[in-house]
Design a protein around this nucleic acid. Structure first.
Lengths: 142, 142
DNA sequence: CTTTGTGCAAACACTTTGCAAGTCC
DNA sequence: GGACTTGCAAAGTGTTTGCACAAAG
């Protein structure tokens, strides 16, 4: 669990991962981006910066970071896997199927829902990163 | 929208699709199965029955059926796309990450959640087929 | 008979893996 | 120095597509 005021290197080591340039670079990209990032975007951002960066490294780094809970991974559809840096709280989203925008979803609503499911079914939903699709009311794309 | 007492052929034609043996066979498999079915399972079930059945046909048929709303499609993870026949009501599920079981999730709870999201965000969540992962309370796999 | 669907095989895109060289601690 | 990471290239997987033939309405 990352503490405030920790450097990315410390966060990595605190999770049992070595602080390598590749991982720090990926973390930079993730933190610089609000919302979802695809593997392709990570690779593009890093290769544009000049450094050589292999795609297998991107997949491995993102998988490692996901494994220790530093990033959230969502599979929206095949070949459309997105990642997001987890700063401190949960992150839930609404994705409009009409205009493609991703909007924040109030965490409390989700928590209430999770609680009610637990009460009713004795099932603990693990939703640190819920993405629901639908249509927003004032969608500019409609 | 399929009406009661309609034959699968009628349902297909009602959706603007031709009633072909391939589609009827896929529908048979879907209806015979409670819960999720993968493409591979559909193909296996049909080829076991003797008839020749190409995988591209499976993908196309499932995609067609999904397009007209006769089946629900869920991407649990890359390469793990599951389909389910939509009989009449919505189908939501809980999937236990420990034992792999899929359990039913009360539709009312989901509906309440969707309503609250709409109230709060003005966003209409399109969830005919929600799959939430987590851990069940009395999981035999724990 | 016209339109739509199917089989076949090849192509695709995303993701994973084996291994040698390189890097972190 | 020893264990972990990266780059590279190649192999997997699941999924899609082009096209000629077959079938549905």
């Amino acid at each position: 669990m990352p503490q405030p005021n920790q450097s990315p290197s410390d966060v990595l080591r605190g999770s049992g991962l070595r602080a390598t340039p590749a991982r720090l670079a990926v973390i930079d990209v993730l933190r610089a981006t609000q919302g979802h990032v695809t593997v392709a975007e990570v690779i593009e951002a890093l290769t544009t910066q000049g450094a050589k960066f292999d795609q297998s490294t991107a997949y491995r780094v993102l998988s490692d970071l996901g494994g220790v809970g530093l990033v959230a991974e969502s599979r929206l559809s095949p070949g459309d896997t997105v990642f997001e840096w987890i700063s401190q709280s949960n992150h839930h989203h609404l994705q409009c199927t009409s205009c493609g925008r991703t909007l924040p979803l109030n965490d409390e609503l989700v928590q209430e829902f999770i609680d009610s499911v637990h009460e009713r079914h004795g099932f603990h939903v693990n939703a640190t990163h819920l993405v629901l699709s639908g249509i927003e009311h004032d969608c500019p794309g409609v």
